[in-house]
Design a protein around this nucleic acid. Structure first.
Length: 440
RNA sequence: GCGGCCAUAGCUCAGUUGGUUAGAGCACAAGAUUGUGAUUCUUGGGGUCGCGGGUUCGAAUCCCGUUGGCCGCCCCA
């Protein structure tokens, strides 16, 4: 049996698996380019402190980290956000705003494997730096939708839940809570969907039991699912901050509606995201059936660039992993069959015909066609079978009869029609076939 | 880090109360078929039954350990 296994949680991509992965990457790239984002890349291995600075020491347990031969503490990147913040922070003064960047890269986390989760995975990251207003959220949520919709998924398949940590913060302030307690409440809100009332246990042990009236208000706020009910809840609270924030909500939702995305976006204040660095709007994409993990998640993080030691820079971004997404596409039957690697298959009679065939194969290949042929002499019947299985639409037949006449026989593998062309005109004939879609 | 289930060919699996040389289908390869893709038939390659130890005259089968996988919890950047 196997002497060497791949490490637990790491993936190997055989050709058909890689074809599916590339299909996903192509779709993401197409969407990001269409939205005016530029692609960048960065190191896979980073100083451990880059992640400590952001999230604290306890994160280290989930990192692939080690000491390199130079005594440096390093880690495989678990996410892109700190890295892209550094890239932007380093050249902030020279970069034209808004900065719209994306990347597709592999990330590593040392944790237990589960459905839709491994120790390495690919993720699309898209971020906008330098724009403090909801215009950045508009653009990123629209891109997020496009990254899913471009594969044939519709509003019946997935939706984006939109929430706002600022709104929560301002609202709880008006209820008389201090910053520490607000943090405790947000932690409970984050887990409420999963744990129910138990979600408030941590808060109770830290600050004492939550007042029933207060808890009712938190649960009511958490259950808000429309802009109308949000407006109703806040109608009697006239704090300037809160009303201004409500204005942001109206404009953001109006923008998204103007883009035709109303069906894809739901107000849902039950989402707050656990991550410490989010500072404003947060959003997550889920499949409608709800039996998969989050497809994507993101939000505003205006303070992170500053925390890494650079000048403050407003930022919004999201990440979207390949594993859960591939599961969804598979469930909906939207993963394409592996595309043919071959366009033209050359059938060769024998040793004498081979040299003529090789010359024309070289010509076709340099003209840009994907051409394949049997490496060894095999029976014609087998060659045609191989031609069909290669996915090629066209076969070129180099047999003794043809060469004697100075022609090549073209066989349309889809309708089995054949005709002959002079050898000198082979490249031309193949080009005609693929541009007209016919062999004649 | 914790718990449950599982591990036999490339894949899906069978393998009786422990008993001769561990099987099938699919896939792969060769031939029937030396100029046309199907079907069919024949044949072949491929296994230290995840690994290590124990019980036994004898272990794929029973026991222990270990590694790996799936699922749930935790976590989710």
């Amino acid at each position: 049996m196997a002497q060497f296994q791949s490490l637990p949680g790491f993936r190997e991509f055989y050709p058909d698996a890689l074809a599916r992965r590339n299909h996903v990457f192509r779709g993401w790239r197409r969407a990001a380019h269409a939205y005016g984002f530029s692609e960048y890349d960065a190191p896979v291995l980073e100083p451990l402190d880059l992640y400590r600075a952001k999230s604290g020491d306890e994160i280290e347990a989930q990192l692939f980290s080690f000491t390199d031969k130079g005594g440096r503490e390093v880690a495989l990147r678990p996410e892109m956000t700190p890295t892209v913040c550094r890239l932007v922070g380093e050249k902030a003064n020279a970069l034209k705003r808004p900065i719209k960047w994306f990347s597709i890269g592999e990330f590593y986390r040392y944790e237990r494997m589960q459905k839709g989760r491994g120790r390495c995975f690919f993720q699309l990251n898209a971020d906008i730096f330098g724009e403090p207003g909801i215009e950045a959220e508009t653009e990123l949520i629209a891109l997020l939708v496009e990254c899913l919709r471009g594969f044939g998924l519709g509003a019946e398949d997935f939706y984006v839940r939109l929430s706002d940590r600022n709104l929560w913060f301002y609202y709880l302030e008006t209820l008389g809570l201090d910053e520490a307690r607000i943090g405790g409440i947000l932690g409970a809100v984050d887990r409420y969907e999963k744990l129910g009332d138990d979600a408030f246990k941590d808060y109770a042990t830290q600050f004492g039991p939550l007042d029933d009236g207060l808890k009712a208000k938190v649960l009511a706020f958490l259950g808000i699912k429309t802009l109308a009910s949000l407006e109703a809840t806040l109608s009697d609270i006239t704090t300037e901050k809160l009303q201004a924030r409500l204005g942001d909500w109206r404009r953001l939702l109006a923008n998204l509606a103007d883009m035709g995305l109303a069906d894809f976006v739901s107000v849902d204040l039950g989402v707050v995201r656990g991550l410490a660095y989010y500072t404003g709007f947060v959003f997550e994409a889920f499949d409608r059936k709800g039996d998969l993990r989050a497809l994507a998640g993101g939000g505003r993080y205006d303070t992170l660039v500053g925390k890494l030691g650079y000048n403050e820079m407003p930022a919004v971004g999201f990440g979207m992993g390949d594993m859960t997404f591939a599961l969804l596409l598979e469930q909906r039957g939207l993963l394409p069959a592996v595309g043919p690697a071959t366009e033209v298959y050359v059938v060769i009679g024998g040793a004498a015909e081979r040299s003529a065939a090789f010359a024309d194969i070289a010509g076709l290949r340099s003209a840009g066609y994907r051409v394949d042929y049997p490496l060894k002499e095999i029976a014609f019947g087998k060659q045609f079978k191989a031609a069909a299985e290669s996915g090629a639409k066209l076969a070129l037949i180099y047999g003794g009869d043809e060469l004697a006449k100075g022609v090549v026989k073209l066989r349309d593998l889809t309708d089995r029609s054949e005709h002959e062309v002079p050898r000198a005109a082979v490249v031309e004939a193949v080009r005609d076939y693929f541009t007209s879609g016919r062999s004649a």
